[in-house]
Amino acid sequence: MIVADRKPIEEIIEYIKDANKVLIVGCNECVTVCEAGGKKEVGVLASALRMYFMNQGKDIKIDEVTLERQCDHEYLEEIRNIIDQYQAVVSLACGVGVQFMSEKYFQTPVFPGVNTCFMGVTEERGVWSERCQGCGQCILATTGGICPVSRCAKRLFNGPCGGSSKGMCEIGGEVPCAWQIIIDRLTALGRLDDYEKLAPIKDWSKERAGGPRKVVREDVRQ
């Protein structure tokens, strides 16, 4: 899933302080699972904002809605009939949802309510960690299923570097060394000899470096 983290309320207050009517829009997908922008978080944020503005003596109406997704036209269309009432929208979806909403409702200011962080997993409730950077050319087949692009701080293709210590990365903060895991995995799979194969120089043009990316599938396109 796409993992996001809540933005400080102060920052959101700053975005919307001049509006009279604000819509907080949650998303029922990834950000619900990582407890940053689902229906619950919409409720908490909206209530907090209402109290803040009331306490400031400002009469700002804050409404709530949570859509199934914000990255598909059909769900974003559900607010077409109401969106014009609002001077500001705070989307608690990931950056994708915020943008798709901005593109669709071009006259309405849309503000991000979360910081979109990465593609990752729920290690345990309250702990999410990165697993993929969408580099566009998956090499997991050669690295025992563990990704050095997203999990090595230097995204080394022929790691580990000299900073791997007792299974941990030199950057600290309890980050495991991806290459230690890769080596452990290759060992477990009886494939440690594969470690000695030099990984070729990466084609980063399939990654962010190549510019905004697009997947077009003529076979399913309408």
Binding site: I9, E10, V44, A48, L49, M51, Y52, N55, Q56
Partner: peptide, 8 residues
């Protein structure tokens, strides 16, 4: 924490 932030 939230109530502190919003001034309640």
């Amino acid at each position: 924490r939230i109530l502190d932030l919003v001034g309640i």
